[in-house]
Design a protein around this nucleic acid. Structure first.
Lengths: 136, 136
DNA sequence: ACGACATTGTTATGTTATATAACAAATGGG
DNA sequence: CCCATTTGTTATATAACATAACAATGTCGT
């Protein structure tokens, strides 16, 4: 089968991201978290009292789409929303949330190692800077 | 803002792929094609009389999800489905499809150049092999 | 201090991509 | 020739992402 697509960086980027996301998602399912959930927990942990919209901006998720996401995390008892000034609300991890995040980190760290392990050594150190240049 | 996520290859991969896909999609909209449409046209062109399910396998798209995709391409007059053996059907580009593909190629080629141009020179040649190692 | 303007959280809604299960019809290997 | 597999298809569900609108609130310039 002729595959002219593999020569296109954009196509390879898409396929690689899909494969990665699918594998990571299934591993995170073991602790009942989605990819976006884990990202939120990590970012809230690193930025205590961050605002819902600031979190959305950091993750490039629209305000409107943060609502069901945060509802789910709050419903699972992982985060708490505290009114900040009548308009904004500050987000924080509950104890349960911190514990779950610790579990997620174990999974994620192992995953990232496996991911980099798939890349031939001579290309490995170039991957992260190259990828970050594409969006940051 | 603390951003522990940018250090994670998996996260960078996701963000880069999203940024790429969003930009390419909006450029392809100029010729009324989606990302998946363009991929199909390219692959059908490179593999004349390819079967619908073989195309789906090559693109990692489920058989069931190929149906609306191919319906759309056929409805737009870009491809033709020809019964092959009573069970399979062979796909081919119409003249309109070939012309549209030529337009798409111009857009895609320019896009891939721009994409690689965003990557610092010292990392550039490592991107494609690194990405392909992650899924192929 | 006030008024114009921007921001926040939210609801509602739509689209795209992707997943599974089921089906009839047809193929192909043993 | 039979049985497992493949093909195209329908129906359906979920996740991710987008837009528009809204009320309430904050902010900034004057």
């Amino acid at each position: 089968m002729q595959d002219p697509l593999s020569h296109l960086p954009g196509y390879a980027l898409r396929r690689a991201a899909n494969a990665m996301l699918s594998e990571l998602s299934s591993r995170l399912a073991a602790v009942d978290l989605r990819y976006a959930d884990a990202s939120c927990l990590i970012l809230i942990d690193a930025n205590p009292a961050i605002t819902a919209s600031a979190l959305g901006r950091a993750l490039d998720i629209q305000r409107a789409n943060m609502v069901p996401l945060l509802n789910r995390l709050e419903g699972a008892g992982l985060i708490a929303r505290t009114p900040l000034d009548g308009k904004s609300q500050s987000l924080s991890l509950t104890d349960t949330g911190r514990a779950r995040l610790a579990e997620a980190r174990t999974i994620i760290d192992a995953f990232e190692l496996d991911l980099l392990g798939m890349v031939p050594a001579e290309h490995r150190d170039h991957l992260l800077p190259a990828l970050n240049a594409l969006w940051q």
